[in-house]
Nucleic acid binder design. Sequence first.
DNA 1: GAGCACTGC
Length: 685
Amino acid sequence: MGDSERRGHGIGKNRQDLINPLTGNPYTPRYYELLKKRLKLPITTYKQKFEELLERPDVPVICVTGETGCGKSTQVSQWCMDFVNRTALTGTRRMVGHILPRRVAAMTVSQRVADEVDVQIGQQVGYHIRFEEMFSKMTQLKFLTDGMLLREIIADPFFEKYSVIIMDEIHERTLATDILLGCLKEILRQRDDLKLVIMSATLDAGKFSKYFDNAPLIAVPGKTYPVDIFYVPEPEKDYVEAAARTVVQIHLTAEEEGDILVFLTVTSKLGSTPTTFIGSRVGSDFPRTSILKVGSVIWSVGADPSNCFDSFSILLTLLLDGIAFVVDPGFSKLKVYNPRIRVESLLISSISKANAQQRAGRAGRTGPGKCFRLFTEKAYQSEMQDFVYPEILRSNLGSVILNMKKLGIDDLIHFDFVDPPSPQSLFSAMETLNYLAAINDDGDLTELGSMMAEFPLDPQLAKMVIASCEYNCSNEILSICCMLTVPQVFVRPAEARRAADESKIQFAHLDGDHLTLLNVYHAFKQHGDSPQWCYENFINFRSVQSADGIRQQLSRIMDRFSLPRRSCDFTSKDYYTNIRKALVAGFFMQTAHKEKSGHYLTIKDQQVVQLHPSTCLDHKPDWVLYNEFVVTAKNYVRTTTDIKVDWVVEIAPAYFQSENLPNCEAKRILEKVRAKLIARGRLKA
DNA sequence: GAGCACTGC
């Protein structure tokens, strides 16, 4: 705590006391207002202990745990900034980097800290997230997303910009965090002037402390009240119904005041507005505010069902006090990866004990609370995992490996991961990168791979973008690539499905959905990026707008590598053919063949798939390329384009060599085509 | 002929 803070409300007699050392200006009234609140935070008691640890040269890593709301994110970074200012040697002053997994969190926490230390955001305190740089030369404390730090480390392998790095919310265990933790452990061996602060939710703390050679741990108790936990006696068949029922019951019987928080995941049952679903069962005279978590969207239920929060307010809302009841069905939507068929999908899966405890904790923020778990106590005790598997164990590792190779980490098998991925999943991703020519047969990054790593894209997309220059259609592929990267371009409101489908027809390209997306992008630009036009044509404005932003970023990267941005003549018969060939250059591993029986099999893994009904293809081509494999009631390939077998053999000869292929109809055709192309001199034997 | 969209660069 600075001198002025110790004097409480800063009614110092000496004018000097009222000067903000960061700016040289007197503190504003707002500063004192916030200071009062800061002094009451649970974490404030631990300031001295933390600072002592920070000063000790033999302590490179400090772990801090505490529940949301204890103040760790806002206060610890200020203490670190003070520390750097106290100890900074003349000459180069280094920064404090505060890493959070989400953009919104990085923005809101940095704004809060800037307010608390009474500076303008972007000056001494700033943030850096994708598409937004809010910092300057004088920035001493910078908030950034983990993905952003992963970009920075490429240019600055020892984090020499920083004196202190704070890794916050690491229990979320994003891919980027896991790579960074491994890198940081190594960097700390080589830099004795770097401090690392690890912050996580309480339960996982021991694991990280141990990983960093038993780093000292500061555990901040939460300011919480007891929460009674209730279980259902029998497993619930339909948890959405059960959740609605429970909400009604609380409403009718509970005497306590307070709001209800329900954790739901998106399911078909809920439709586009879970509000209506719950609302229809709860009735309209529902006095309590229900906040329903649906993916990343929070919906409020109550008198005004249209009153739903946008994603920016979610964090703030969830931090809001006043919740006395939690209804927890015990599920969340989780990415799972099947390495055998190389498919990532979102599955509704059971949450972990740690998740369940965190959810229950929401009920005890302002007073005693109740948590209704819609699963049995036995399931909790014996079936739930302690923690959900971290993302790195549930993902296709293509991007991860590309990133790590770019950082010069060659031996991935012996890299010190907190949770090492299996050698099989590493190998399968290496194989994919090898087919894309991003790494050579020795596992070393090629020049192409090094370039691919610079693009914030999946390896296939990066390869496609770079390859498109050879096909004279990089402008078009760039647009398609961005449209593939953003969510849900076509809007289909429940009440206007037919109108939406009819509207989509005007963009439809009969050769495939990729070209349809290109048409949408072009139309969007022709109509001057108009939100109104989007609305009228059932196009998701936010999606196409962000596609446009990504496009600008990717364009700059292309320019940096002198990759020509070109289009071939629109009237040429090759215009669309070139584009489709460029698609093949990136996605040749995601192709399917129509068997004689009429159904499609994926080439490499022989999965039976169907074209997703949303496709614009008006025919069933013999060969299709797909962007996505989705598993719902059936296996579908979504966003598909008609391709010619000659192209795949010509463009990816190594991949389509027959020894790689399972014995099937497609293999025999590919062999014939191969022989034909060799005979014509279009392919080397 | 179904509907199911988690984040980050």
